[in-house]
Design a protein around this nucleic acid. Structure first.
Lengths: 109, 109
DNA sequence: CTACGATATATCAAAACACGATATAGTTCA
DNA sequence: TGAACTATATCGTGTTTTGATATATCGTAG
C-alpha cells in the first residue's frame, strides 16, 4: 500500500538536499512538529530498505572538511525515488482536496 | 507515529457518514484510485484496533429495511476519532504546504 | 582539560501492522 | 441455475515500527 510513512518522510527530506541520517531525523521531527519521530530503529531499517529498492543511494560527496563530521553517512534521492515521492504527493493532494470539499471538521491553522 | 495509513483512511471514510466495512473498503479504493487497498485482513484488524482505542464504535442504527442487508455491520466515528483525524489532516496540510513552497518536482494534475 | 549534552550510527527483540489466501454465505441479475 | 458481486471473518506470513541498548565522536561550559 502506497509508501510507509517513514519512507515518505525520508524521501521528502532528501528531495530538498542530500542529508545524513541524523539530519533526516531532525528535519522530519521539525516539519511534523514532533508528530513523526524516526527513532534509530525505524530510520536505519528504512534507509536500508529504500537503498535496496533503489529509491535512495549513499553519496560519496562530502561537505567542506571544516564543516564535515567523519561519522556521517550521506544519502541522496534517486530518479526512482523522486518518482515514488511524486506519486505519493499526488495521492495526498487528492485526499486533501476531498477533505476540503467535504469539509470534514477541519480548518488549516 | 501519527496514524497508520489504514486507520487514517477508515476514519476519513467514516467522517462523511456511517458505513459498513465493505463500503469503507470501496470508498477508500475509489478515493485513492487504487493506491490504497484495504483487504479483509487489514480492514477488520484495523476496525478492531480503532474500536479498542475508542476512535470508532459500532452503530445500532440501520438504514430503511428495504435498503438494508442483514449481514452488514455499521461503524461510526467518535469525537475522539474526529479529533485524531483532524490532527492528521492538519499534519498532512503542513507537509503539503512545505512541498509546494520547496517545489519538490511535483505539480497537481 | 574534562565532564556533559548533543550528535551520529548501529543492532536487537517485541509489538503492531499489512498482505494474500481461504472460508462462508447472502444478493443480484441474466 | 449459475456467475459475479457483496459482505464479514480468520489465519499465517512477512513487513514495519517501537523502545531499549550500545558505542563513539563532537562541541562547549566550567
Amino acid at each position: 500500500m502506497a509508501l510507509p510513512t517513514s519512507h515518505f518522510h525520508i524521501l521528502f527530506a532528501l528531495a530538498e538536499e542530500d542529508r545524513h541520517g541524523y539530519s533526516i531525523m531532525k528535519e522530519t521531527e521539525e516539519l511534523t512538529q514532533g508528530d513523526v519521530r524516526l527513532g534509530p530503529g525505524a530510520l536505519y531499517a528504512a534507509l536500508g530498505r529504500l537503498a535496496d529498492q533503489g529509491l535512495i543511494e549513499e553519496s560519496e560527496e562530502r561537505p567542506a572538511p571544516d564543516l564535515d563530521d567523519a561519522r556521517r553517512r550521506y544519502y541522496r534521492i534517486t530518479e526512482d525515488g523522486r518518482a515514488a515521492l511524486g506519486g505519493e504527493l499526488q495521492r495526498l493532494h487528492r485526499v486533501m482536496e476531498h477533505a476540503r470539499r467535504a469539509d470534514l471538521g477541519w480548518s488549516p491553522t
